[in-house]
């Protein structure tokens, strides 16, 4: 424990999934870091890109199939409309405790000084351009550039 006595200086959060719960976990961790005076950057890769895709970001779902924490039979979870139902229930509960919708949350993160990066490889794979993304995304980065930004003592990388 000799680097800043183990103090966290910067969180680099990789968002690799677009289920509502993982995206919110990542947002809350980034916002929480800034609230503690810790720098935070987010790298959106693979399906995580949906969280910054203009057309998709307000339509993220939670998984009702293959998610044992839902406590419903897997076959039921597969019925049409189940994901939308569960997701809108979750959104309503979150609004009650003042957790903003995805777009507003991105606005808060940007205003708080969080950097938002899109993964180049995933952008190419999904044939997305910068025009498809939330307007205030900082840039499109390669994984090498992302590591370069992670340099320095007290930086932690978190994969969600």
């Amino acid at each position: 424990m000799n680097e800043f006595n183990g103090e966290i200086k910067k969180m680099m959060i990789i968002v690799s999934k677009a289920t509502l719960d993982s995206v919110y976990a990542a947002f809350i961790l980034a916002n929480g870091a800034r609230a503690e005076g810790i720098e935070a950057e987010m790298f959106f890769t693979f399906f995580g890109l949906e969280a910054i895709n203009k057309k998709k970001l307000e339509h993220l779902h939670i998984a009702t199939v293959g998610n044992p924490a839902m406590h419903i039979p897997t076959m039921l979870g597969g019925f049409p409309g189940m994901e939308s139902l569960a997701s809108s229930m979750m959104r309503r509960e979150m609004e009650k405790i003042d957790i903003p919708p995805v777009h507003e949350f991105l606005d808060i993160l940007k205003a708080s000084g969080v950097k938002l990066w899109a993964c180049k490889l995933a952008m190419d794979m999904f044939h997305y351009t910068k025009a498809d993304l939330y307007d205030d995304v900082d840039d499109i980065l390669t994984v090498g550039a992302f590591y370069d930004r992670s340099k320095g003592l007290g930086t932690h990388i978190l994969f969600i």
Partner: peptide
């Protein structure tokens, strides 16, 4: 932080 942002007193930035 959300309530601060909507306070009308100060924005988050």
């Amino acid at each position: 932080i959300r309530r601060i942002g909507s306070s009308g007193v100060v924005d988050i930035k």
